[in-house]
Each structure stands twice: as structure tokens, then as C-alpha cells.
């Protein structure tokens, strides 16, 4: 018998990524939290170590409006324009 594949779908084409601004310092770093319980504290703790032991300074912080929602593209664009690196709390 011939079966129609119930998993078939067409992969979506990804948008062209935004290119970071050239004048952003190489070691500029931000935190991005998924707003799940404990995520902010975890990221801030990591930032404390990075500042004390690896010489990072001016570490930024941003977060999703809440854990249940997706990250807003304009917020990500804004971060990409200011930072070269990010520590992201993503999976609980």
C-alpha cells in the first residue's frame, strides 16, 4: 500500500541575519534571561565571576518579558548592535 507521509513539511527559509556594528568592542558582553525562576540569579552570578576573574566590564542585562513568551526580534536586534557576546539562559 502507498502511504502519504504525515510528517512532511517544507523547511522555512531563514531570514538574513543582522550584521553586528563594526565599532562594538570585541569583549562587550550581555546577559539575556529567559525569565524562568532562578535564571536571572544564575546569569548575574556568572557575570560576577566574569568581571572578577576574566576582566569583563559593563556587562549588560536583558530578558524576555516573561518566560512563556518568545524573545522580541527588536530586542535581539538592539542587543546585537551593542554586544559581541552573550550569556543566554535558554533551557529552564
Amino acid at each position: 500500500m502507498r502511504i502519504v507521509d504525515p510528517t512532511f513539511g517544507t523547511p522555512v527559509e531563514e531570514d538574513t541575519p543582522t550584521v553586528v556594528a563594526a565599532d562594538v568592542p570585541a569583549r562587550s558582553l550581555c546577559l539575556f534571561s529567559n525569565s524562568k525562576p532562578g535564571a536571572n540569579e544564575l546569569l548575574r552570578g556568572v557575570a560576577g565571576h566574569l568581571e572578577a576573574e576574566r576582566g569583563f566590564a559593563g556587562i549588560g542585562f536583558s530578558s524576555k518579558p516573561n518566560a512563556a513568551a518568545g524573545a522580541a526580534p527588536d530586542v535581539l536586534d538592539h542587543l546585537a548592535a551593542q554586544y559581541r557576546m552573550a550569556v543566554v539562559a535558554i533551557g529552564d
Binding site: F8, G9, T10, P11, V12
Partner: peptide
């Protein structure tokens, strides 16, 4: 992120 076809 797959676009579902009508047949599927």
C-alpha cells in the same frame, strides 16, 4: 519550523 503541506 516545517511548513505543513495540505496532503500531510
Amino acid at each position: 519550523r516545517l511548513v505543513p503541506g495540505l496532503r500531510a
